[in-house]
Simulated scan of single mutants.
Amino acid sequence: MPDIPVLLIAVVGIALLFDFTNGAHDSANAIATVVSTKVLSPLTAVCMAGVLNLVGAFLGTAVAHTMGSGIVRPDVVSGSQGVVLAALMGAIIWNLLTWYWGLPSSSSHALVGGLIGAAVAYGGWDTPSYGSIAHKVLLPLVLSPLAGFVSGYLLMVLLSWLVRRSTPHRVNGLFKKLQILSSAFMATSHGLNDAQKTMGIITLALFLAGSIPEMTVPFWVKLACAASMGLGTASGGWKIVKTMGHKIFKLEPIHGFAAETAAAAVISGASVLGAPISTTHTISTTVIGVGASKRLSAVRWGVAGRLVMAWVMTIPAAALASAACYWLLALTGIAR
C-alpha cells in the first residue's frame, strides 16, 4: 500500500483534474449566450470567462466549507484519502460521459454524488451528513432552478416593457454592449461557486491526512483550484455551448443579457450562503424562463426535458460510479 503522502499527492492531482474538467464542461454557462448572439467571438468569450473564473475563485470560501465538512462526516472517514480519490474518479467519469453526450449536467452534483457514494462504500449509510445534504444541497437543487426560471422570466418581462418603444436595431445595439457585462458577471459568479467545491475537497483530503489541523482552506489550494478552473474554461466546451446557446431557445442579445444577469444573481446569492448549487441548472432554467416570457412555444421543451433527466440522474449515477471506484481501489489495496 502506497504511503499517505503519495496517495495525497494523487488525490490533489486528480482534484485539480476534476477542476479542469469542470471548467471545460461548464464554460458554456458563462459564454454560450454571448457566443450564440454573436456579441463576442468564441475565442474572446472563452478567454474572458477563463480569467474571470479565476478571479471569482478568490472571492469567498463558504461553499468550500460546505463541501469539505457538510457532505460526509470527517470523523467517520478520518484517515481514508481513498474516499476522496474515489469520489473524484466517479465525478470525472460522469462529467466525461455527459460532455461526450453534450448534456449540460451538473459537475457540482456529480461531485456531491461522488462523495456520498464513496463514503457509503467505505463506512456504510451512517457516513453522509444527511441534515447538511438536505439543507445545503437538496433544497438548493430544487430551489435554484426555480429561482432561475422565475428571475429569467420576470427580468425579461421587465426589459421588454422598458424597450417597448425602441426599434429592434437600437435594442440589439444596446444589449450587445450590456451582454459583455452580464457575461462577465456570470463568469465571475461561476468561479465563486464552482472553484470553491474543489477547494473543499482538497482541504478535506489534507485534513484526513493530518496535513492541516483544521478545515481551513490554504492559500495554495485557492490558487491551484482557481488556475485549474481558468485553464479548463479556456479549453472550451463547444458541444455544450451549442446545446445551451442554440437548442433550448433562439437567443438575441436582450435575451442573453436577461438570462446571464438573472443566473449570476442567483448563483452569487447561493455562494454567499455557502450552497454548492449547479451553475448549469441555473443558467439553463433562466434561458428557459426568458424564452417562456416570449411565448411557451419558443422553448424547445424536448431538449429541456433531456436536461432535466440529466439533472435527476447526476447524483445517483455519480454515487454509483464512485462506489464502484472505491471498491476497485480497495481490491487493489490503494484504499482502505
Results as ranks from 00 to 15, higher is better:
Val39Ile: 13
Ala134Val: 13
Asp126Asn: 13
Ala45Ser: 02
Val63Pro: 02
Leu96Trp: 00
Ile202Ala: 04
Ala57His: 11
Ala62Arg: 15
Ser105Pro: 07
Thr198Gln: 05
Ser166Glu: 12
Ser211Asp: 15
Leu296Tyr: 14
Arg336Met: 12
Ala304His: 15
Val76Met: 04
Val39Glu: 13
Ser235Asn: 11
Ala24Ser: 05
Ser144Trp: 01
Thr243Leu: 00
Ala187Pro: 03
Ile31Ala: 03
His190Asp: 08
Thr286Asp: 03
Leu59Gln: 02
Pro140Glu: 10
Arg165Ala: 09
Ile4Asp: 12
Gly56Gln: 03
Leu174Trp: 14
Leu111Asp: 09
Met67Trp: 04
Ala323Lys: 01
Ser41Gln: 12
Thr286Ile: 07
Asp19Trp: 04
Ile315Tyr: 02
Phe207Ser: 03
Ala265Leu: 13
Ser271Thr: 08
Val266Thr: 11
Ala227His: 12
Ile288Gln: 03
Ala49Tyr: 05
Ser27Arg: 00
Pro74Arg: 03
Gly236Pro: 00
Val12Asn: 05
Thr332Ala: 15
Ala119Asn: 02
Val39Trp: 10
Leu251Asp: 06
Val55Gly: 08
Ser132Ile: 11
Ile288Asn: 07
Val171Thr: 10
Val35His: 06
Glu214Tyr: 12
His255Trp: 05
Ala298Met: 11
Thr44Ser: 15
Leu17Asp: 15
Thr279Phe: 09
Asn193Ile: 06
Ile71Cys: 01
Val34Met: 09
Ala10Tyr: 13
Leu138Trp: 14
Ser78Lys: 15
Ser129Lys: 15
Gln196Ala: 14
Lys242Gly: 08
Leu85Gln: 04
Lys136Phe: 11
Leu174Glu: 14
Asn29Gly: 12
Ile212Leu: 06
Val120Leu: 10
Thr98Leu: 01
Ala318Lys: 00
Arg300Asp: 14
Ala28Thr: 10
Asp126Thr: 14
Ala28Gln: 02
Trp220Thr: 05
Ser27Thr: 11
Leu181Gln: 09
Gly256Cys: 09
Thr282Tyr: 03
Gly333Ala: 01
Ser151Ile: 07
Ser293His: 01
Ala32Glu: 02
Ala205His: 07
Gly102Ile: 02
Pro253Lys: 02
Ala121Tyr: 01
Thr285Arg: 06
Ala321Cys: 15
Thr286His: 06
Leu231Trp: 07
Val6Leu: 11
Trp327Phe: 12
Gly173His: 12
Ile240Tyr: 13
Tyr326Thr: 05
Gly245Pro: 00
Lys197Cys: 10
Ala310Met: 09
Ala118Trp: 06
Ile277Cys: 07
Val46Tyr: 08
Met156His: 08
Phe20Pro: 08
Arg295His: 13
Ser151Cys: 07
